[in-house]
Design a protein around this nucleic acid. Structure first.
Lengths: 250, 250
DNA sequence: TAGATTAGCTACCGGCGAGTATGGTCCACG
DNA sequence: CGTGGACCATACTCGCCGGTAGCTAATCTA
């Protein structure tokens, strides 16, 4: 699969112009997966029939089966499309020379972005009861990889002094839970992007609820819901490294 | 409904001795709902048939329908059973003379307890796509009530100085998300209770990731997983075993 | 131009599971 | 003692949906 992650492309279906057939099987296949993701997102996995997906693409069910073996695989592919970015971010975080808290923040930003994406729902809510044992195992392995990566960053941060001592396991659960839950309430219509939401969450997690005398409450991320421009200067040492790095789309 | 919330009662069914019929309708009705919650918890809503639920109670499907009008209502009742405790806690928090952060903490403790309960799954994952519009509206209203209650506590805490300034809406999302997600990974088998987990989360949220010079790291909740059973397996995204796709064999 | 390959459609099957029709059994009460 | 109602089982119906068979038409290849 090549560039499934990008951009809310308009729902135009590649079948439309039957004249200039792209004959690019991969493009169509991705369109099927994206349509499935959108449908799952709206109606849930079990309430979505393959006829629905086909209708959204203005084709019929056998056509969908021409690109995909079964419904389960459709869900699986959506999951992969969503989680791949996070895995990349986790791997990347290990090879950087920054305090662990900064590397963790970069991971969380990508995490939030992925969860708020088109595939966020599938990524977060794919129940392994709906998948065959081997696919379920795949998914569990990937989720575990991410979880362990976050725990490791927490441990490293505790050791290098950039993170307050805490239970890495439980803290990772709390962080991942807060971010995962974005998929339940986020709709693109709202003002904020996934990255912005992640940024706001990160501020909450970093600062904590208990007042910190030293820190001003002028921090723009603490103002209620304006969508400021990206305010790159407010916090010293904020790593734009992760942001500047272009998404690897191949 | 009387006391559905209590205690992981053994899965004994009140029908057991068909000889000594209890003939207590309310008791049986609650047993049905609890059995449904357990089944949904294990296999998911859509993968659970009413025959499954009936079988768990050692009765047949019409018996279930004798106590409940349809499957949807079953899910709804489970939801109510789970969320009622949180609503009560939110209401109670308004009539106390404590700093808002303390009242918020009390709410979050009840929240975590509810999410880790038998009905946590139903409460958290009841998709409103699976419910009729009016039931969905009920549920949304209750969820909103809780959300608004948390936001209010945050605002009050910011004003009385017990909570560091933050965006109440986003912070409420982060808190609720972290706690909701407990339902995805928590299994009673593990060592911690729901309240204990909530307590740990609260510590994380209060303190924040950034180091606080004043605070000792001797806080027992910050030690990694004091009473560890065979941990190392559970992780946030992956609800554990739950033998996938167990079909009702007849 | 003939066969092969690609891509899509119409029309169907099979079963699973929600919900029901019907009737039997046990108890309470008169 | 028989009658009504509460309670539960057997044995269905029926619609939906995942998946398939088999055809057609276009394009490619040689």
């Amino acid at each position: 699969m090549s560039s499934l992650k990008g951009t809310g492309s308009p729902p135009a279906s590649p079948w439309r112009a039957s004249r200039e057939r792209l004959r690019d099987r991969e493009v169509k296949r991705e369109a099927v997966i994206r349509a499935a993701a959108r449908a799952f997102n709206r109606k849930g996995y079990h309430n979505t029939s393959l006829d629905d997906i086909a209708a959204a693409l203005e084709v019929t069910k056998p056509t969908v089966y021409y690109y995909v073996t079964n419904k389960e695989q459709l869900l699986f592919e959506c999951f992969i499309a969503g989680i791949e970015g996070i895995r990349a971010a986790v791997r990347e975080a290990r090879s950087q020379a920054l305090p662990a808290r900064e590397r963790l923040k970069a991971v969380l930003r990508h995490y939030g972005e992925a969860v708020a994406s088109e595939f966020g729902w599938c990524m977060v809510r794919a129940e392994d009861q709906d998948l065959s044992p081997d696919m379920s195992a795949h998914i569990k392995a990937m989720k575990s990889e991410i979880d362990q990566g976050i725990r490791r960053l927490l441990r490293e941060g505790i050791q290098d002094g950039s993170i307050h001592p805490c239970d890495p396991k439980m803290t990772a659960f709390a962080l991942a839970g807060a971010l995962n839950w974005i998929a339940h309430w986020y709709r693109e219509s709202q003002g904020m992007s996934g990255t912005e939401i992640a940024e706001t969450f990160i501020t909450v997690f970093e600062t904590g609820l208990k007042p910190r005398p030293g820190i001003s409450n002028e921090d723009p991320t603490c103002r209620p819901m304006n969508r400021r421009a990206k305010s790159s200067s407010s916090r010293p040492g904020a790593p734009r490294s992760a942001r500047s790095r272009e998404r690897s789309r191949r």
